[in-house]
Design a binder for these strands. Structure first.
Length: 345
DNA sequence: AACGAGCTCAACCGCTATTTA
DNA sequence: ATAAATAGCGGTTGAGCTCGT
């Protein structure tokens, strides 16, 4: 396997590009396309190696590059995708039009990573950095959900339950998308853009993560759109009973949120259950089967020891509804931004 | 104004993956 | 089947900038 000798060639210029070089490169590519990067510098009259030209073009001169600060939406997308994909900057970049892998990588290293660390989260696993007990204030804040306690009307409860049903149906579909055999699912690494099932899974993950968080922390559960087709055909009980979550062994930080209602459909109690891994050998890309991300044989699934934390706010349970979900990369931000958290913690 | 610490980001380096002969 | 050439990726570096003292 030979290495490119271009970087070893002497006499080629290195370092920052001048405006003149930029102009030469841009004009040449606009006229001829880049063709062979190795041949390009000579043809364009540049004393640079092809690799340097390629980098300058893809990271800076390309006309579709979007410059400037990352929007909160882009930031959220990066967080979500990083929690699923890890440091796969080029894959993440395909979900952010106009942004380069280099730019995203820099943004992660200089902003997002620090942000997560400051909040006590491991930037690689998106989990609390130490043990579960260091995060207890967060969990207590979640468990003391004022919003759920204040939802007394039947209409609100109905909307909430229907929303849950919609999310559970989505989870079911997500599970369907992630079903083995992995061989039937084209590898992300082998294609320039994610496949349709991949995209659907990502979109679902994003929507589920966002909706779950908004359900837990938002004061307005009506914000969540409910697909009418799902509402019409699924009852919560039926859907919930049909979800075998144990089929996703490396689901990250699975959590369940339960509310108990009396016969008048009043919320009597809420229970937050989070299964947290102990130790550091947890899987880092838990949402997708490893085999769908890498062409190499998947490692055996790691099932870390789990700790169950349940926090219940009083009352007698007459009926129970629940949903379960996976990782939430935006918990830290939501928690720290949410006035409820400060009020309670 | 001068200085230093910290930050940003363009560019490079070294490696793997893929393509070509 | 093999080796060389090429493309692309992720980690790292360092020049230049900003900000506080």
């Amino acid at each position: 396997m030979g290495r490119s000798p271009c970087c070893d060639e002497t006499g080629l210029k290195k370092g920052p590009w001048t405006a003149e070089e930029d102009e030469k490169l841009t004009k040449y590519i606009q006229k001829h396309g880049h063709g062979s990067w190795r041949a390009l510098p000579k043809l364009a009259g540049l004393n640079r190696c092809g690799k340097s030209c390629r980098l300058r073009w893809t990271n800076y001169l390309r006309p579709d590059i979007k410059r400037g600060k990352f929007s909160p939406e882009e930031e959220q997308t990066i967080l979500n995708l990083h929690s699923v994909l890890g440091n796969k900057w080029s894959t993440i970049a395909t979900h952010l039009p106009g942004r380069t892998d280099n730019e995203i990588k820099n943004f992660w290293n200089t902003h997002l990573k620090k942000k997560l660390i400051q909040m006590g989260f491991d930037p690689m696993t998106h989990r609390p950095r130490t043990d579960i007990f260091s995060s207890l204030p967060h969990l207590i804040a979640l468990a003391n959900l004022k919003e759920l306690m204040e939802q007394n009307s039947w209409e609100k409860q109905a909307v909430r339950l229907q929303t849950e049903a919609a999310q559970i149906a989505k989870l079911q579909y997500l599970q369907y998308l992630l079903q083995p055999p992995a061989a039937s699912m084209p590898s992300l690494s082998n294609s320039l853009s994610p496949t349709i099932p991949d995209m659907e899974a990502y979109n679902l993950l994003n929507s589920l993560s966002a909706v779950k968080d908004s359900q837990v922390l938002s004061t307005n559960p009506m914000e969540t759109p409910i697909p009418s087709s799902i509402m019409a055909t699924n009852t919560l009980q039926a859907v919930h009973e049909s979800i075998p979550f144990s089929h996703l062994p490396d689901l990250e930080s699975p959590c369940s949120f339960q509310t108990s209602m009396n016969k008048d459909h009043m919320v009597q109690a809420s229970t937050l259950t989070i299964l947290c891994s102990q130790g550091e050998n947890s899987p880092t890309s838990p949402w997708l089967p490893h085999s769908s991300l890498s062409p190499s044989p998947p490692p055996p699934p790691v099932i870390p020891p789990m700790t169950e934390v349940s926090i219940t706010n009083g009352g007698d349970a007459c009926s129970t509804s629940s949903y379960e979900g996976g990782p939430s990369s935006i918990w830290p931000e939501l928690l720290l931004d949410d006035p409820l958290f400060h009020e309670i913690a």
